[in-house]
Protein backbone atom coordinates (compact mmCIF):
# COMPACT_ATOMS: atom_id res chain seq x y z
CA UNK A 1 0.00 0.00 0.00
CA UNK A 2 1.49 3.31 -0.99
CA UNK A 3 1.54 6.34 1.24
CA UNK A 4 -1.64 8.39 1.68
CA UNK A 5 -0.84 12.00 0.80
CA UNK A 6 -4.29 13.46 1.44
CA UNK A 7 -6.60 11.82 3.88
CA UNK A 8 -10.07 13.06 4.80
CA UNK A 9 -11.67 11.39 7.79
CA UNK A 10 -15.31 11.63 8.83
CA UNK A 11 -15.65 15.05 7.31
CA UNK A 12 -18.90 16.82 8.05
CA UNK A 13 -19.76 20.29 6.80
CA UNK A 14 -22.92 22.11 7.73
CA UNK A 15 -24.05 25.53 6.50
CA UNK A 16 -26.65 26.76 8.94
CA UNK A 17 -29.10 23.89 8.92
CA UNK A 18 -27.99 22.42 5.60
CA UNK A 19 -25.70 19.42 5.72
CA UNK A 20 -23.40 19.67 2.70
CA UNK A 21 -21.10 16.81 3.64
CA UNK A 22 -21.74 14.05 6.12
CA UNK A 23 -19.07 11.73 7.51
CA UNK A 24 -17.11 11.63 4.28
CA UNK A 25 -13.92 9.54 4.11
CA UNK A 26 -11.57 10.03 1.18
CA UNK A 27 -7.92 9.65 0.45
CA UNK A 28 -5.41 10.21 -2.31
CA UNK A 29 -2.29 8.05 -2.39
CA UNK A 30 1.11 8.71 -3.83
CA UNK A 31 1.23 8.37 -7.60
CA UNK A 32 -2.47 7.87 -8.22
CA UNK A 33 -5.27 9.64 -9.99
CA UNK A 34 -8.29 9.52 -7.72
CA UNK A 35 -11.63 10.71 -9.00
CA UNK A 36 -14.58 12.17 -7.12
CA UNK A 37 -17.85 11.89 -8.96
CA UNK A 38 -21.48 12.37 -8.16
CA UNK A 39 -24.59 14.16 -9.33
CA UNK A 40 -24.75 17.96 -9.30
CA UNK A 41 -24.96 19.38 -5.83
CA UNK A 42 -23.54 16.24 -4.22
CA UNK A 43 -20.90 18.29 -2.40
CA UNK A 44 -17.83 17.63 -4.53
CA UNK A 45 -16.56 21.20 -4.76
CA UNK A 46 -17.32 21.60 -1.06
CA UNK A 47 -14.77 18.85 -0.42
CA UNK A 48 -12.18 20.98 -2.24
CA UNK A 49 -13.18 24.11 -0.38
CA UNK A 50 -12.93 22.40 2.98
CA UNK A 51 -9.67 20.60 2.19
CA UNK A 52 -8.01 23.84 1.09
CA UNK A 53 -9.10 25.61 4.25
CA UNK A 54 -11.58 27.97 2.60
CA UNK A 55 -14.28 26.57 4.89
CA UNK A 56 -13.59 25.22 8.34
CA UNK A 57 -15.20 21.80 8.68
CA UNK A 58 -17.96 21.27 11.22
CA UNK A 59 -16.34 17.98 12.20
CA UNK A 60 -13.72 15.59 10.91
CA UNK A 61 -10.07 15.53 10.10
CA UNK A 62 -8.00 16.48 7.10
CA UNK A 63 -4.45 15.19 6.91
CA UNK A 64 -2.00 16.41 4.31
CA UNK A 65 0.99 14.09 4.31
CA UNK A 66 0.02 12.91 7.81
CA UNK A 67 -0.21 16.44 9.16
CA UNK A 68 -3.55 17.87 10.25
CA UNK A 69 -4.48 21.00 8.30
CA UNK A 70 -7.83 21.76 9.94
CA UNK A 71 -7.83 25.40 10.97
CA UNK A 72 -4.66 26.18 9.01
CA UNK A 73 -4.89 29.26 6.77
CA UNK A 74 -5.65 28.65 3.12
CA UNK A 75 -2.41 30.05 1.79
CA UNK A 76 -0.42 27.94 4.23
CA UNK A 77 -2.23 24.78 3.17
CA UNK A 78 -1.46 25.73 -0.42
CA UNK A 79 2.22 26.08 0.44
CA UNK A 80 2.23 22.77 2.30
CA UNK A 81 1.23 21.10 -0.94
CA UNK A 82 -2.44 21.33 -1.87
CA UNK A 83 -3.11 23.23 -5.09
CA UNK A 84 -6.35 23.49 -6.99
CA UNK A 85 -8.10 24.65 -10.12
CA UNK A 86 -11.64 25.97 -10.39
CA UNK A 87 -14.85 24.83 -11.98
CA UNK A 88 -15.18 28.12 -13.85
CA UNK A 89 -11.71 29.23 -14.79
CA UNK A 90 -10.41 31.83 -12.35
CA UNK A 91 -7.17 33.27 -13.67
CA UNK A 92 -5.60 36.63 -12.88
CA UNK A 93 -6.99 38.07 -16.10
CA UNK A 94 -4.91 41.22 -16.36
CA UNK A 95 -1.64 39.42 -15.75
CA UNK A 96 0.29 37.57 -18.43
CA UNK A 97 0.29 33.80 -18.58
CA UNK A 98 3.86 33.74 -17.35
CA UNK A 99 3.05 36.02 -14.41
CA UNK A 100 0.08 33.87 -13.47
CA UNK A 101 2.32 30.84 -13.13
CA UNK A 102 5.08 32.84 -11.45
CA UNK A 103 2.60 33.95 -8.78
CA UNK A 104 2.10 30.29 -7.93
CA UNK A 105 5.82 29.57 -8.06
CA UNK A 106 6.57 32.53 -5.77
CA UNK A 107 4.92 30.71 -2.89
CA UNK A 108 7.92 28.39 -2.71
CA UNK A 109 10.32 31.32 -2.44
CA UNK A 110 11.83 32.76 0.69
CA UNK A 111 12.29 36.40 -0.28
CA UNK A 112 10.22 38.93 1.60
CA UNK A 113 9.07 42.38 0.62
CA UNK A 114 12.10 44.26 1.87
CA UNK A 115 14.41 41.74 0.23
CA UNK A 116 12.69 42.40 -3.08
CA UNK A 117 12.97 46.13 -2.60
CA UNK A 118 16.69 46.11 -1.89
CA UNK A 119 17.40 43.42 -4.46
CA UNK A 120 19.22 41.02 -2.16
CA UNK A 121 20.94 38.01 -3.67
CA UNK A 122 18.10 35.79 -2.39
CA UNK A 123 15.62 37.96 -4.22
CA UNK A 124 17.51 37.66 -7.47
CA UNK A 125 17.83 33.90 -7.10
CA UNK A 126 14.15 33.60 -6.28
CA UNK A 127 13.07 35.73 -9.21
CA UNK A 128 15.12 33.55 -11.51
CA UNK A 129 13.73 30.41 -9.96
CA UNK A 130 10.12 31.57 -10.37
CA UNK A 131 10.75 32.63 -13.93
CA UNK A 132 12.46 29.38 -14.86
CA UNK A 133 9.82 27.27 -13.11
CA UNK A 134 7.00 29.14 -14.84
CA UNK A 135 8.60 28.82 -18.25
CA UNK A 136 9.11 25.09 -17.71
CA UNK A 137 5.51 24.58 -16.68
CA UNK A 138 4.12 26.55 -19.62
CA UNK A 139 6.24 24.32 -21.81
CA UNK A 140 5.05 21.20 -19.96
CA UNK A 141 1.44 22.23 -20.58
CA UNK A 142 2.21 23.05 -24.20
CA UNK A 143 1.39 26.74 -23.97
CA UNK A 144 4.84 28.37 -24.08
CA UNK A 145 3.73 30.51 -26.98
CA UNK A 146 1.20 32.21 -24.70
CA UNK A 147 3.76 33.31 -22.10
CA UNK A 148 3.47 37.05 -22.72
CA UNK A 149 -0.25 37.22 -23.38
CA UNK A 150 -2.78 38.43 -20.87
CA UNK A 151 -4.60 35.50 -19.34
CA UNK A 152 -8.01 36.94 -20.18
CA UNK A 153 -7.16 37.03 -23.88
CA UNK A 154 -6.23 33.35 -24.10
CA UNK A 155 -8.47 30.84 -25.86
CA UNK A 156 -10.59 28.83 -23.45
CA UNK A 157 -8.62 25.61 -23.72
CA UNK A 158 -5.36 27.38 -23.02
CA UNK A 159 -6.90 29.12 -20.04
CA UNK A 160 -7.74 25.72 -18.57
CA UNK A 161 -4.17 24.56 -19.20
CA UNK A 162 -2.77 27.75 -17.72
CA UNK A 163 -4.80 27.23 -14.59
CA UNK A 164 -3.30 23.77 -14.16
CA UNK A 165 0.19 25.15 -14.80
CA UNK A 166 -0.35 27.81 -12.12
CA UNK A 167 -1.42 25.14 -9.62
CA UNK A 168 1.54 22.92 -10.49
CA UNK A 169 3.87 25.83 -9.82
CA UNK A 170 3.14 25.34 -6.14
CA UNK A 171 4.81 21.91 -6.46
CA UNK A 172 1.82 20.37 -4.73
CA UNK A 173 1.76 16.97 -3.12
CA UNK A 174 -1.81 16.65 -4.33
CA UNK A 175 -3.34 18.51 -7.24
CA UNK A 176 -7.08 19.12 -7.04
CA UNK A 177 -8.74 19.50 -10.43
CA UNK A 178 -12.32 20.77 -10.45
CA UNK A 179 -14.02 19.68 -13.68
CA UNK A 180 -11.03 20.32 -15.91
CA UNK A 181 -12.81 18.97 -19.00
CA UNK A 182 -15.85 21.23 -18.74
CA UNK A 183 -16.54 22.81 -22.10
CA UNK A 184 -14.10 20.61 -23.99
CA UNK A 185 -14.88 18.68 -27.17
CA UNK A 186 -14.15 14.92 -27.33
CA UNK A 187 -10.78 15.44 -28.98
CA UNK A 188 -9.73 17.96 -26.34
CA UNK A 189 -10.92 15.63 -23.59
CA UNK A 190 -8.63 12.88 -24.87
CA UNK A 191 -5.72 15.32 -24.90
CA UNK A 192 -6.59 16.45 -21.39
CA UNK A 193 -6.73 12.82 -20.20
CA UNK A 194 -3.23 12.26 -21.49
CA UNK A 195 -2.07 15.47 -19.89
CA UNK A 196 -3.44 14.45 -16.49
CA UNK A 197 -1.67 11.09 -16.79
CA UNK A 198 1.49 12.97 -17.70
CA UNK A 199 1.06 15.09 -14.56
CA UNK A 200 0.66 11.95 -12.48
CA UNK A 201 3.74 10.42 -14.06
CA UNK A 202 5.68 13.58 -13.24
CA UNK A 203 5.06 12.73 -9.60
CA UNK A 204 1.92 14.60 -8.57
CA UNK A 205 -1.01 12.78 -7.01
CA UNK A 206 -4.27 14.01 -8.52
CA UNK A 207 -7.79 14.30 -7.14
CA UNK A 208 -10.20 14.92 -9.95
CA UNK A 209 -13.80 16.12 -9.92
CA UNK A 210 -15.32 15.34 -13.30
CA UNK A 211 -18.68 14.84 -14.90
CA UNK A 212 -17.41 13.14 -18.04
CA UNK A 213 -17.63 9.46 -17.17
CA UNK A 214 -15.61 8.16 -20.09
CA UNK A 215 -12.70 10.41 -19.09
CA UNK A 216 -12.98 9.40 -15.44
CA UNK A 217 -13.16 5.70 -16.27
CA UNK A 218 -10.23 5.90 -18.63
CA UNK A 219 -7.69 7.68 -16.45
CA UNK A 220 -8.56 7.17 -12.79
CA UNK A 221 -7.03 4.56 -10.60
CA UNK A 222 -9.78 4.83 -8.01
CA UNK A 223 -13.19 6.44 -7.98
CA UNK A 224 -15.26 7.71 -5.05
CA UNK A 225 -18.91 8.58 -5.48
CA UNK A 226 -20.71 11.29 -3.51
CA UNK A 227 -24.45 11.67 -3.36
CA UNK A 228 -26.26 14.19 -1.14
CA UNK A 229 -23.06 14.81 0.80
CA UNK A 230 -22.43 11.14 1.56
CA UNK A 231 -19.96 8.73 0.07
CA UNK A 232 -21.99 5.92 -1.43
CA UNK A 233 -19.31 3.93 -3.20
CA UNK A 234 -15.59 3.61 -3.77
CA UNK A 235 -13.43 1.33 -5.89
CA UNK A 236 -11.84 0.83 -9.26
CA UNK A 237 -13.68 2.38 -12.19
CA UNK A 238 -15.17 -0.96 -13.23
CA UNK A 239 -16.33 -1.81 -9.69
CA UNK A 240 -18.02 1.54 -9.29
CA UNK A 241 -19.73 1.29 -12.65
CA UNK A 242 -21.42 -1.95 -11.56
CA UNK A 243 -22.45 -0.67 -8.12
CA UNK A 244 -26.23 -0.58 -7.83
CA UNK A 245 -26.25 2.43 -5.46
CA UNK A 246 -24.25 4.45 -7.96
CA UNK A 247 -26.55 3.50 -10.80
CA UNK A 248 -29.54 4.55 -8.71
CA UNK A 249 -27.95 7.85 -7.78
CA UNK A 250 -27.25 8.65 -11.39
CA UNK A 251 -30.50 7.40 -12.88
CA UNK A 252 -32.38 10.53 -11.89
CA UNK A 253 -29.79 12.72 -13.48
CA UNK A 254 -28.73 10.59 -16.44
CA UNK A 255 -28.52 13.63 -18.68
CA UNK A 256 -25.85 15.24 -16.61
CA UNK A 257 -23.83 12.11 -16.22
CA UNK A 258 -23.25 11.44 -19.89
Amino acid sequence: MSKKLLEIRNLTMKFGGVVALSEVNLHVSEGEIAALIGPNGAGKTTVFNVATGYYTPTAGEILLDNESVVGVKTYKIARKGLARTFQNVRLFGDMTALENVMTGADSKNKVGLLGSMFGTSTSKKDEERSHKKAAELLNFMGISHRAGQLAKNLPYGDQRRLEIARALALEPKVLLLDEPAAGFNPQEKVELGNLIKKIRDAGFAVLLIEHDMSLVMKISDRVSVLDFGQKIAEGTPSEVQKDQKVIDAYLGVADHAS
Binding site: Y54, Y75, L91, D106, K108, A167, L170
Partner: peptide
Protein backbone atom coordinates in the same frame (compact mmCIF):
# COMPACT_ATOMS: atom_id res chain seq x y z
CA UNK B 1 -9.62 34.25 -2.92
CA UNK B 2 -7.69 32.70 -5.77
CA UNK B 3 -4.51 34.47 -4.70
CA UNK B 4 -4.91 32.87 -1.29
CA UNK B 5 -5.46 29.45 -2.89
CA UNK B 6 -2.24 29.99 -4.83
CA UNK B 7 -0.24 30.42 -1.66
CA UNK B 8 -0.13 34.23 -1.61
CA UNK B 9 -0.14 35.55 1.95
Amino acid sequence: DVAEFMGVA
